[in-house]
Simulated assay, not measured.
Amino acid sequence: MTEDVKARKFSTLFRWFDRNGDGQLTRDDFQQMADMFAGLVREGAEENAAAMRAAFETWWQLLLAHGDRDGSGQISPHEFITVMEADVTDPQHFEQAVLAIADALMRALDTDQDGVLSQAEYVRMYDVLGIPPVHSEAAFRLLDQDGDGSLSHAEFRTAITDFYLSDDPKAPGNWLLGPIDQAA
C-alpha cells in the first residue's frame, strides 16, 4: 500500500508536468513548468525566478540521467515514477531539485514579505498553476498545522516533503496538487 501512495502522487505529478498531454515528459514540459512558476514572481524578486528555473533544470537533468533508460530524451510515466522513487527523492538530490523550488516559490509568493503565506497568496499560486481553488483551499486548511491562518516557511517545506517522501496516505502534504486520486 505504501508504494501505491507514492506511485499515485507521482502519477498525479506526471500528469501535471505533462503540459502538452502527450504522455511523455520532455525538456519543453519542464521549461513550461519553470516559466509558470517564474511567472508568479513579484517585481523586484527576479532572483527567485532564476532560482526556480535553475532548480527545474536540475530536476530535468536528474530525470534524464537516472530515468531515461531508452535514451529517447523523453520520460515515460513508468520511468518518471521509478526515477522519482529512487533518485529525485534521494536526500542528495531532493534539496537541490525540489526544495530549491519550494524555497524560491515561498519567497516569491510572500507578496507582503511577512514571512508566511496567507490563504489568498497560497490559493492564487495554485490557481495560476492550474489547480482548482476548491482543492487549494482544502489543502491550505490541512497544511496550516498550527491553525494560525497562514503557512510558515517550515509548514510549506513540510507539505512539500510530505508530498514527495511520505508513504502515509493521510499525510496533509498529499493534498498539494489536490486529491491524489484525481488528475492534476
Rank of each mutant, 00 (worst) to 15 (best):
I131S: 01
Q113I: 05
L176V: 08
N48E: 12
G130T: 07
F156T: 09
A86E: 15
F94R: 00
D28V: 15
R42Y: 06
Q31M: 12
H153W: 10
Q32D: 07
E47G: 04
V123T: 10
I75P: 11
A108K: 00
T89C: 13
A7L: 12
V5W: 11
D114L: 06
G178L: 06
T161L: 06
G71I: 01
S118K: 03
F94C: 04
Q92K: 11
S136N: 02
R27F: 04
Q92Y: 05
A138E: 07
H78A: 15
K170V: 14
G73W: 02
G21H: 03
T12H: 08
G147D: 08
G21K: 10
L64W: 06
N48I: 00
G73K: 12
F140A: 08
R69H: 12
D162V: 03
M52L: 05
P91L: 07
P179N: 14
Q31N: 14
A138S: 10
H93G: 12
Q24N: 11
A38H: 02
L165S: 01
T161A: 07
E79H: 09
W59S: 10
L64V: 04
G130E: 02
D127Y: 04
L25V: 10
R107G: 04
F14C: 09
A38G: 09
G73R: 09
A86F: 03
A183R: 08
V116F: 12
L142N: 07
Y164C: 03
V88H: 01
S136T: 15
Q92S: 14
A138V: 11
L25Y: 12
P169Q: 05
Y164I: 08
T111Y: 05
M125L: 13
D4A: 15
D112N: 14
G71T: 05
E46A: 01
A97H: 04
Q182C: 07
F140Q: 02
L25M: 12
W16H: 15
D29T: 15
Q61H: 09
A49N: 07
L142C: 05
S136C: 06
R15M: 14
G178D: 00
D28Y: 06
H135Q: 13
P133N: 13
D144A: 11
